[in-house]
């Protein structure tokens, strides 16, 4: 007997899926803002060789980039309580995403900063810009502009990676999918639709980041 696909039992739970999708997006948004923020700090420390922070960030980047996100998540959620630090599943998920994205964006933004020609800084100094102004307008902005596509891809990778947060019971999209398939016994259909939602979110984030890049990064100075 051939299997008959039934998507109706999944669509009964549309509200749960939408709620899960919302939380996945919210997790990603918080993770992206703080992760890129952390990345900017790390990149500046490394590019300007501010010791000891430069060395610390170098170690941090290597540690995070060479271990799986899932293990980082487990370490934070299951490991930290034995040091007396108790955090909930949402805090653990956000923390893991920020730490993970922070490491990758440190590396990405550092490459951007390195690509700013030295003459630009000298030109800024000759225009009597102070250190802060020249950093903001002459270094950071063009650097972010250069690496914005790479950052966009990384944010999407982190969003897709957040699917494993369901393993510590963070109630995001995959958690909702696991719950639904345990109710309707339509595992394939449930995960199929969930995958489609993830795909849509990935496209949405790409467009959003593109718009943000156009409006705030490459846009005219106001």
């Amino acid at each position: 007997m051939a299997y008959e696909f039934e998507f109706a039992p999944v669509l009964e739970y549309t509200d749960l899926l939408l709620k899960g999708a919302f939380f996945t997006i919210a997790l990603t948004a918080v993770g992206a803002v703080f992760g890129i923020g952390l990345g900017i700090i790390g990149a500046v420390c490394r590019a300007w060789r501010l010791q000891p922070f430069a060395a610390l960030f170098a170690v941090y980047v290597e540690l995070i980039r060479n271990t799986p996100f899932l293990v980082q998540l487990f370490f934070i959620f299951f490991g930290l309580p034995s040091l007396g630090i108790h955090i909930g599943e949402w805090e653990a998920a956000v923390l893991a995403m920020v730490i993970n994205l922070g490491a990758y964006s440190t590396e990405i933004i550092r490459a951007g900063i390195a690509s700013v020609p030295k003459g630009q800084l000298e030109a800024a100094a000759s225009l009597a810009m102070n250190r802060y102004e020249s950093f903001r307008y002459v270094v950071l902005r063009p650097a972010l502009q250069t690496v914005w596509p790479a950052l966009t891809s990384q944010v999407i990778i982190v969003m897709l990676g957040s699917a494993v947060c369901s393993q510590i019971a963070t109630e995001e999209l995959t958690f909702a999918a696991n719950f639904i398939q345990s109710r309707n016994f339509r595992a394939f259909e449930t995960y199929f639709i969930t995958t489609a939602i993830y795909f849509a979110i990935a496209i949405m984030i790409r467009q959003l980041m593109l718009a943000i890049g156009k409006r705030y990064i490459s846009g005219r100075l106001s």
Binding site: L160, V164, F188, Y191, T195, F199, I203
Partner: peptide, 19 residues
């Protein structure tokens, strides 16, 4: 590239058993 690895694994896992 646009979907989570976990979902790909689930779909392979449950999809092949449907076949």
């Amino acid at each position: 590239q646009g979907t989570p690895l976990l979902m790909q694994l689930f779909i392979v896992f449950f999809g092949l058993s449907l076949l």
